[in-house]
Amino acid sequence: MTFLRVIQWVVWKDLISEMRSRETLSSMLFFALIVILVFSFSFAMDQDAAQQLIAGIIWVSFAFTGIIGLGKSFSAELQNDALEYLQMSPTPKGAIYLGKMLGNLLFMLVVEVMLFPLFVLFFNLNIVEEIGLLLLIFLLATLGLSAVGTLFSALTVQIRAREVMLPVLLLPLAIPVMIAAVESTRGALNAQPLTLYFHWIELLTIFDVIFTVVSFWLFELILDS
């Protein structure tokens, strides 16, 4: 199989099994709903305070929800020893990485797009003009989380205490993504001029490129049995 076909098959496989079980998406969605509810109870906010805080709240819930999806991405492969077949398959490991990474990106983006209207509703946001830009920020930041997260999901699934170790290893490394995502989302939500937060979008892009390449190369060492 060619490289691109492998990527396509891995994404397709993940999509099919998700369509049949609906495990990952539904658990992510419900978890995120609970996070939103907890946040809206914890802070009694007027609209000014919401404008300041909402970007942080959005990204904390997206990151935690993303970790659930990332963890499931490889722990699902433990059933029927599917992970060993992935390890033994003669296909390039980098292609498996890219397929898994795109699948995770897709799941996380779907959840984010479904959740965002709820934030708008609960926290009374105005987003009329900046919606395209916001989607771009979501895409870039989620790509960054997914690039590092897929690598560490494949790593932690093969060790003890995997549910604890994934966030413990991933979140410190994802700090630049979180800072840049929060700052640019805040800029876009408050309708600031683009030049004020454009450097954060650049940082997200740089992070995405570096860590997709690095994880692509290192993935072979993780999936080697």
């Binding site: 590092v148 690598l151 790593l155 290893l169 490394l173 700090i175 630049p176 800072i179 840049a180 940082l203 740089i206 992070f207 570096i210 860590f211 690095v214 994880s215 290192l218 060492l221 993780i222």
Partner: peptide, 16 residues
């Protein structure tokens, strides 16, 4: 692998 990813990440963390 973790040490290498962390080492590449640290300068980015610092600049951000």
């Amino acid at each position: 692998v973790l040490a290498i990813v962390g080492g590449i990440d640290l300068p980015i963390i610092y600049f951000s």
